[in-house]
């Protein structure tokens, strides 16, 4: 290591919907291309493997100031992460993320959904958020908020039939995600309502 090359600073993690990104501030060296290398250490490495670190090859000698670490953060344990700068053979000291990162802290956003009425059929389309996600869909006839029905979807199919509607009645739908691996759910999406009217749907 060389004291001339400063370690990367402002190392932080941005984790949303079980996708985890490590970012840091660029190290500026006039007239030089600075590259970075990232390593991670899980709880297993700390407790059973002499506190060893593992390089993330996709983020070795990268010029980017960010790294997608999702693939390697694949257990609900505390991880440590570090980055160093390199210019030619010169390497900085490691800059280490303050504290630990555990994927249970990922932020979960409500799912995007599209509610349609195909004739008298109430349909919902949900965005595919990856295998870790389940969806809980609530739907009810407007005015009968006490009789909410629920459908839990473990895998996303393109369009899901929720109910057969009465003519002229308004039906409302909202949904949330659930990630079993961390046993947490998102907040609910906005409610969307439609009305069955013959064979054309009508947004309300």
């Amino acid at each position: 290591e060389d004291a001339l090359l400063p370690a990367p600073q402002n190392i932080s993690i941005h984790s949303t919907n079980m996708k985890h990104f490590l970012t840091w501030s660029p190290v500026i060296v006039q007239g030089e291309t600075v590259r970075y290398s990232v390593e991670f250490q899980g709880e297993y490495e700390r407790e059973y493997a002499n506190e060893s670190w593992l390089p993330i090859s996709e983020c070795s000698l990268t010029t980017a100031t960010g790294c997608n670490i999702t693939e390697d953060i694949s257990a609900s344990v505390a991880y440590k992460l570090r980055v160093r700068a390199e210019v030619g053979a010169t390497r900085s000291q490691w800059g280490t993320l303050k504290g630990f990162f555990n994927r249970v802290t990922t932020s979960l956003t409500p799912p995007l959904l599209k509610v349609t009425a195909d004739g008298y059929h109430l349909l919902v389309e949900l965005e595919d958020m990856g295998p870790a996600f389940q969806f809980r869909v609530l739907y009810w006839k407007k005015g009968q908020e006490r009789r909410v029905q629920q459908k839990v979807m473990k895998e996303v199919r393109s369009v899901v039939h929720l109910d057969t509607m009465e003519a002229g009645a308004d039906y409302c739908v909202k949904a949330q995600t659930h990630v079993e691996a961390i046993n947490r759910s998102s907040s609910f999406s906005q409610t969307q309502c439609v009305r069955a009217q013959g064979d054309t749907s009508m947004w309300l």
């Binding site: 991670f40 297993y44 059973y48 694949s74 344990v77």
Partner: peptide, 10 residues
């Protein structure tokens, strides 16, 4: 292996 080991740990 690290991924499996950390999953086994939890």
């Amino acid at each position: 292996i690290s991924s499996i080991a950390n999953s086994f740990l939890s």
